[in-house]
Write a protein that binds this DNA or RNA. Structure first.
Lengths: 330, 330
DNA sequence: CTGTTAGCGCTTTCAC
DNA sequence: GTGAAAGCGCTAACAG
């Protein structure tokens, strides 16, 4: 491996000049710059990132801490972030908190030790409840999860509004008994619960809710048990795409026909929701936009640490499909 | 931020002793060790990773370069790798080559500059064709893609065998005209094509293949056009989960009933393949095992650079479902 | 068992 | 416009 001193020697200049050229600084003659560039190419020189980082204290690495990389929602966000990072020649350290405050803590510590330029984070409920940007040595942008009280840059969906619209749609379709299966591990699930409650209250209806772990497996099990213990709801609603999948599995297993026997709807417009029978009404989230906005917010904050806090609220799109279309009983 | 010298001062020892304690080396008195540990805690000291890296030349960071993070197959592998890395207190730099040799090159260069301990890579066809471990300054383990000629550690599916079994299953179900939609960007797609060809040849049947980009969108479009231009096949087969989804979409759009009008099968046991109507016959890949094996192979190679090359070949599991169950025409 | 010291490769004053 | 030299924080000889 060639070092910067090798390049300097080869180009007949000092290491300082090489550093200036590589750093894109002005104050170097065209002749010297050209010789340096030629030497870099000739020696196939690549600066040692660790040395550069140590000396300059800066990094072009970002951290991304998501709750579960297998959740397509986070996958798509990660992808959008990665694209922007690549365009800016920055690296992304992707971490998986698994909704576990301890893992989350480990990764946040690690990112601090790595001296990352900034972090995009979908916080656990635990961390969010006492989140203060000042507790971190780097700028943080929250994604997916944020409360109105949190004083941090954030990109989130208007969960309450989206849930309300989804529920109102169901009420318009003559549903009276609507059971919500919602995750409890994240602020998102709780906000969607809140929207559900208020929409039902406005219509004078009684809420039926089932708090569960936000996984496909838990959702399937919960609905199966619910069907055994309670009268058949007019509709079931999932607070996330993972839960929605579990509900669909359970309905199938229970031999229930949708939309004849029961309606179903949920969050996240995952590809499979279009191809199952019936296709499923969902709130679609602009995942690519969310990811892109988050990293842009972060890069802006890195460039201007002092700027005022910004919170971007996205609107979910209600996509009405067959699963909520009442049919005449044949 | 506390430095190692602060810790040394606080504990009344030299920086060397602190370094020894932190590095878990022997040759430190219990008394000194305890004082150091207390000082570390008192000062909330965290070593600067860049400095450590620069000095020691070692890293506990691994690189993972996948073709597309949105593909659930790679997502699950990433997750498994991440879990093992976390257990070993190592970081993973996740990179997305997007099947683009240029991006792949960029990331591999970056990982070299980062001085990673090793890399897990699903190579583009371009790179695989001239892949030599010696070209890299770090150990590389290939996942998902490898040829018999490639002299590298690898974890792959027995693609030819899996494709053969899938096709033979279809032939057993009286299919004669079987159209394969396969990706061309990766070795995997081509190996599955090979298995398809040999299974058909063994049965004396004529192959019908459609080379496409390995995306849902391309697959949907290709099948729609295929249906327009050719007689209806007995079965269509997808060489990947992404393609399979596109085929299902197209069948739906074309108003074709499965398994009445046509059979369908493919690779990757994604969750949705169980809940669509009909549920779909697939070759399931042991993704968690693949990921885990890959990082274990890599860690073993890092520990023992000289050891002989190892290639782990996994067997796909044929899961027969309704989509390939011929029914009596009613 | 412990401390002193010399760098790892780079950026950045500070002179010239 | 350019170079010499001083470290960034840490680890690893090497002495003691």
């Amino acid at each position: 491996m060639a070092r910067i001193s090798d390049v300097a020697k080869h180009a007949g200049v000092s290491v300082a000049t090489v550093s200036r050229v590589l750093g894109g600084q002005s104050g170097v003659s065209d002749a010297a710059r050209e010789r340096v560039l030629a030497a870099v190419k000739a020696l196939d020189y690549h600066p040692d990132l660790a040395a550069r980082r140590l000396r300059s204290g800066k990094t072009d690495t970002l951290g991304l801490v998501v709750a579960d990389i297998r959740n397509p929602y986070f996958t798509e966000i990660s992808r959008a972030i990665e694209d922007v990072a690549y365009a800016n020649r920055m690296r992304v350290l992707l971490c998986n908190s698994d909704e576990d405050p301890e893992k989350e803590r480990f990764y946040l510590d690690m990112l601090r030790d790595e001296n990352v330029a900034g972090v995009i984070l979908s916080p656990t409920l635990d961390l969010l409840s006492r989140f203060r940007p000042a507790d971190f040595s780097f700028p943080v942008v929250l994604v997916d999860r944020c409360t109105p009280e949190t004083e941090a840059d954030a990109v989130v969906l208007d969960n309450i509004d989206a849930a309300q619209r989804l529920i109102r749609h169901l009420i318009d379709r003559d549903c009276r008994r609507i059971t919500l299966f919602h995750g409890t591990a994240s602020a998102t699930g709780l906000q969607r619960l809140e929207g559900y409650r208020s929409a039902l209250a406005a219509a004078g209806l009684t809420p039926f809710t089932q708090a569960i772990k936000s996984t496909t497996f838990a959702a399937r099990k919960a609905l199966l048990e619910h069907l055994r213990a309670h009268p058949l709801p007019d509709a079931v609603v999932a607070s996330s795409g993972l839960i929605l999948l579990g509900l669909v599995e359970a309905l199938r297993e229970a031999g229930l026909q949708c939309p004849r026997d029961i309606l179903i709807a949920g969050f996240d417009d995952q590809p499979w929701t279009r191809i199952v029978t019936p296709d499923i009404t969902v709130i679609a989230q602009p995942t690519a936009d969310i990811g892109r906005s988050a990293i842009e917010l972060l890069l802006a904050r890195v460039a201007q640490p002092g700027q005022a806090r910004r919170c971007i609220v996205m609107r979910g799109e209600l996509i009405v499909r067959t699963s909520t279309c009442r049919v005449q009983n044949t």
